[in-house]
Design a protein around this nucleic acid. Structure first.
Length: 657
RNA sequence: GCCGAGGUAGCUCAGUGGUAGAGCAGCCGAUUCGUAAUCGGCAGGUCGCGAGUUCAACUCUCGCCCUCGGCUCCA
């Protein structure tokens, strides 16, 4: 048979000679399509199924001959998958440039990533910024030559021989591991050749909008025992405009960086004298924390939680019972000996809550028991991973543990999710992603808990989500060893996801601690246990809030809500009077009585991102008014003070964003 | 922890083998001012810490601490 049938997305079927390429078909459809085409997607047609496809579709080169019936789709920039192919080709271009400039490098891997690509190299000398400039220039030079990306097939022994000859030990390793068939594919870009599954875009011409961003050490295959390669990261997009937008987003993220704003707004600090990863909350940060915590505690009480408090240090033996000394030891601060007994700084709150549960016999009438604590924990994190407020060594979790009967699971999960959404709404997040992590059912030996527990808990989580109309992504094999969980990721003001809320079942601790309740039947039963944190950590959540609001907190959270700006000392009395009145109405007011001109006072208040400024001069003093300026809306003109108090009170009460 | 880059006044940064400078912030004084910086003066630093080389180290070398970008991990 030398004719094959190619089905296009619109359902039309073309009969073409065997060996016809997607590019040829694209040309037949329209020259413009052929020009825009980057890569093709095929899936099994009506005839012989595609023998290569791992799932039901596969991306292939535009110049790859088709030799069986397929469904074919020509992908252009509009298709999300094409961008990854494009970036992958850009990674090859980087490797081509580097091997030309530095022929002795050993190559690692070079995949596409979310904003571009990287390629790994082993080289004695570190790549310098000057090297990157040279590499960039070489890449542009090669790209301009419009080098084709050509697919070549080699037998496995030939491939290994090729890499042995060129001393590419990592590539040898990859061929050994990944080549499951006798013949493996390579791609050439000019003189450069790389073991690669492909596909690639036809040639280098289009690769113009990229920027080499940084060099970073990365272990071969991510294993610390392996040699460390130099990874060159690059951003890459189809157009310079998109690249510029991305770089602009990076600038925006930098502008919002909570570490920078933390200093500028005097919110918190980390002190070298005290130790890394330990947070000092300054008065303004502390005030915002207080407001957040007050809101949270009120909600906890309204929602049927009990507030508890547990010690920061407890006997090491307790952590043996809980199992933490076994599987969590590398994250714990070392034990402290007191009177010949070892004590442990707590890395988690669970055992404390369990001891409270156990302190009295529980009846089914007591369940669910919901114990909540803003519990400060200490974890040893390796020095290289610490990051502002987002990754620290001491932090306060808004932790709670729910002990319940199986019949109560669903309503408890639902209540947790409802609470999580209340948090999101209150703190101004409106986008989120939910993940449900299940076990890997093929390896029950890696988990505790009975299969029926897993099944029931996972079903409860999934059904609750479905009932609440919450879209979620189920991920198998991502669960902790002790139970399935739901994670909620919030999307912030500039589109970055942050994992905060987690709701986790625990089939491990109730058994380890022998938790019980007396059932209706008079017999002893083991309760189900759920861990849940909404903010995750108060420190981390605060850091995220700072970035989300770019430091401009809504009125109800702002540490200083109103700045009083008298025009001159002549109205000092009136300024004090207005300040006191506002304070008496519960506002956080600051009077700027410095000997400065009004513009300077306005500027400083703006830089401090204070929501409202009240300008007071002789006119206002006469009329008993205040001139209101909003930090983003600007001058709102003079208003009677009672009117301002009323509208600001409403704004605070509604927690409006 | 590892790779790379850094650490100079409260902050942002300049600087040189001969023991340091600017702007802002602070303090003092003048000015009494209308919606993003009034003017002048003063004060402020063991140049991250510890060794070593040198007649002399902030500068060169080594070790350590801390920060940043990654790897890895994660609330």
């Amino acid at each position: 048979m030398d004719q094959i049938h190619v089905t296009l997305p619109d359902g039309k079927v073309q009969e073409v000679p065997k060996g016809t390429t997607p590019l040829e078909i694209a040309r037949k459809i329209s020259p413009r399509l052929a020009d825009a085409a980057l890569v093709a997607r095929i899936s099994a047609g009506n005839g012989v199924p595609n023998p290569n496809a791992t799932d039901n579709s596969e991306l292939i080169d535009l110049r790859r001959p088709l030799d069986y019936d397929v469904k074919l789709q020509i992908l252009t920039e509009k298709d999300a998958d094409a961008l990854y192919v494009f970036r992958h080709s850009a990674a090859h271009l980087l490797a081509a440039a580097v091997t030309e400039l530095f022929p002795d490098v050993k190559l690692g891997i070079g995949p596409p990533i979310d904003t571009g690509f990287f390629y790994e190299f082993l080289r004695e000398e570190p790549f310098t910024p000057e090297d990157l400039v040279k590499i960039d220039a070489k890449m542009r030079q090669l790209a301009a030559q419009d080098l084709p990306n050509e697919r070549k097939l080699l037998s496995k022994p030939e491939a290994i021989e090729l890499y042995k000859k060129t001393n590419q030990t990592f590539k040898c390793e990859l061929v050994e591991e990944k080549a499951t068939e006798p013949v493996v594919s390579f791609y050439t870009t000019g003189k450069f050749i790389d073991f690669c599954r492909g596909p690639h875009i036809p040639s280098t011409k289009r690769i113009t909008a990229f920027k080499l961003m940084s060099v970073a050490g990365a272990y071969w295959k991510g294993q610390e025992a392996n040699p460390q390669l130099q990874r060159i990261y690059a951003a890459a997009f189809y157009t310079q405009k998109e690249l510029d937008e991305y770089l602009h987003r990076l600038e925006e993220a930098k502008r919002r960086d909570h570490r920078k704003l933390g200093v500028e707004l005097d919110l918190f600090s980390i002190q070298e004298e005290a130790g890394p990863g330990l947070i000092f909350w300054h008065p303004k940060g502390g005030l915002i924390r207080k407001i957040m915590e007050d809101w949270l505690r009120d909600e906890l009480l309204h929602r049927g939680y009990d507030l508890v408090a547990t010690p920061h240090i407890m006997k090491l033996d307790l952590w043996k019972t809980s199992g933490h000394t076994g599987y969590y030891r590398e994250n714990m601060f070392g034990p402290v000996e007191v009177e010949k007994t070892d004590y442990q700084l707590k890395p988690m709150n669970c055992p404390g809550h369990i001891l409270i549960y156990k302190a009295r016999m529980k009846s089914y009438r007591d369940l669910p028991v919901r114990l909540a604590e803003l519990g400060t924990v200490y974890r040893y994190e390796r020095s290289g991973v610490l990051h502002g407020l987002l990754r620290v060594r001491g932090f306060t979790q808004d932790d709670a543990h729910i002990f319940c009967m199986p019949s109560q699971i669903e309503s408890e999960v639902e209540a947790c999710m409802d609470f999580a959404f209340a948090v999101m709404k209150t703190f101004g997040f409106d986008k989120f992603e939910v993940e449900l992590s299940d076990w890997d059912a093929s390896h029950p030996e890696n988990y505790t808990g009975k299969p029926e527990d897993w099944q029931r808990a996972t079903a409860a989580l999934a059904e609750t989500m479905t009932r609440m109309n919450i879209p979620f992504k189920k991920i198998d094999g991502e669960a902790a060893f002790y139970g399935p969980k739901i994670d909620v990721k919030l999307i912030d003001a500039i589109g970055r996801p942050w994992q905060l809320t987690t709701v986790q079942f625990d089939f491990n601790l109730p058994a380890r601690f022998g938790l019980q309740y007396i059932g209706e039947d008079g017999a002893k039963h083991e309760p189900l246990m759920v861990h849940r944190a909404l903010l995750g950590s108060v420190e981390r959540f605060f850091g995220i809030l700072v970035e989300h609001y770019a430091g401009a907190f809504p009125l109800w959270l702002a540490p200083v809500q109103i700045e009083i700006c008298p025009v001159s000392e002549k109205v000092a009395d009136y300024a004090h009077q207005v300040t006191d009145t506002l304070k008496s109405h519960g506002f956080r007011v600051h009077l700027d009585d410095r000997n400065e001109k009004l513009p300077a006072k306005i500027r400083d208040a703006q830089l401090q991102k204070i929501p409202y400024m009240l300008v007071l001069g002789p006119k206002e003093s006469e009329a008993g008014t205040v001139s209101v300026r909003h930090r983003t809306k600007g001058d709102l003109g003079p208003k009677p003070l009672p009117e301002v108090i009323e509208s600001l009170t409403k704004e605070v009460e509604s927690k409006s964003q």
